[in-house]
């Protein structure tokens, strides 16, 4: 449970920074979405049987919804579906497990 709280706080922090600080530091004219990068990296590096990555994606989608003007929940849904697909792909074809 502590791990999930920590992950939620970490994702929240990245989301807040993304919506305030990172926008002022574009790289080659573009602002990378660090939240998406974090989700993809987490999904890529977590253990095969772990489902934390999907939760991380859910939290990220939730924060996206907070800072967006689309109908609430659309991003959460997209992140969850995307994370599920990525998880299946990574498990089948990549298989790097560093995060426990």
């Amino acid at each position: 449970m502590t791990k999930y709280i920590f992950l939620f706080l970490l994702v929240s922090m990245i989301a807040v920074l993304q919506s305030s600080v990172f926008a002022l530091f574009p790289l080659w004219g573009l602002v990378p979405n660090y939240l998406i990068i974090f989700v993809i990296l987490y999904l890529l590096l977590e253990k095969e049987r772990s489902s934390e990555g999907v939760f991380v994606a859910g939290f990220s989608g939730l924060w996206f919804d907070v800072f967006a003007s689309t109908p609430f929940g659309v991003y959460t849904l997209c992140f969850l579906v995307g994370a599920y697909v990525l998880k299946l792909t990574f498990n089948r074809y990549v298989g790097v497990s560093i995060v426990s």
């Binding site: 919804d65 907070v66 109908p71 609430f72 929940g73 659309v74 959460t76 849904l77 969850l80 599920y84």
Partner: peptide, 24 residues
């Protein structure tokens, strides 16, 4: 995912979830 999809569809007509955004 199914429940969430349903919630989103319902919230399009009854925007009760926008309160969550305001709080956030």
């Amino acid at each position: 995912i199914t429940i969430l999809t349903l919630l989103i569809v319902v919230s399009l007509f009854f925007p009760f979830l926008s309160g969550v955004r305001e709080v956030g």
